[in-house]
């Protein structure tokens, strides 16, 4: 897993809970090293799991809620990094359908070996979008957080539903986003 995920997690935790919380979860996670991460490095996924578990223990929040919040943080960072990709004029569904494009053009050039998740549009109506979320890691809550972040970014209330699904590519999470009247 790219070091960027760890550094972003620490940035998120520090913003929410203060710098001491970062120290604490690093200590609690019992990492095989002192917890120094660089964004361009690569680290075992297990270390991320250990840190997240430590965080849930320290905060008392569930893992999905934790991931959800981190997902929203991630989306905000993307907007910060590449605002032209996420202008509010694009509308929620266009932004969500454009995430893969953002990954391929903006993320890939910095992190060519990153294992990036994918958001594929399955069905789209004026009011509803069905996305398939594909990732080699069980982080669908993180995806939900990303979508929430996007909805908040364009100030669009939504209802979301997730269900496990399978197709030729294998198992994935189907997320249905329905626009709500504001």
């Amino acid at each position: 897993m790219k070091g960027l995920v760890f550094t972003e997690l620490f940035r998120h935790v520090e913003a929410l809970h203060g710098a001491n919380m970062v120290d604490d979860i690093i200590e609690a996670a019992q990492l095989p090293h002192d917890g120094g991460y660089t964004s361009i490095g690569s680290y075992p996924f297990q270390e991320a799991v250990a840190l997240l578990v430590a965080l849930t223990r320290a905060t008392g929040k569930s893992l999905p809620d934790t991931l959800d919040a981190f997902g929203t943080h991630c989306f905000e960072r993307w907007v910060n990094y590449a605002p032209h990709f996420f202008t509010q004029q694009r509308g929620l569904f266009d932004i969500l359908e454009g995430i893969d494009d953002f990954h391929e053009t903006e993320v890939r050039k910095l992190y060519p070996d990153a294992e990036l998740p994918s958001f594929l549009s399955e069905q789209r109506t004026e009011r509803q979008l069905t996305l398939g979320y594909y990732s080699c890691k069980p982080l669908s809550a993180l995806a939900v957080g990303v979508i929430k972040g996007a909805a908040a970014h364009v100030q669009q209330p939504v209802h979301m539903a997730c269900e496990p699904a399978t197709n030729a590519r294998g198992a994935y999470t189907r997320i249905t986003i329905t626009l709500l009247d504001s």
Binding site: A19, D23, D34, G36, T38, I40
Partner: peptide
């Protein structure tokens, strides 16, 4: 102690970054 550990983490991260670079 926390500051020392953070410094150590920063140093370690910088060294990793340098090695990678």
């Amino acid at each position: 102690r926390r500051l020392e550990r953070r410094l150590a983490r920063q140093t370690s991260a910088r060294e990793q970054a340098e090695t990678l670079l």
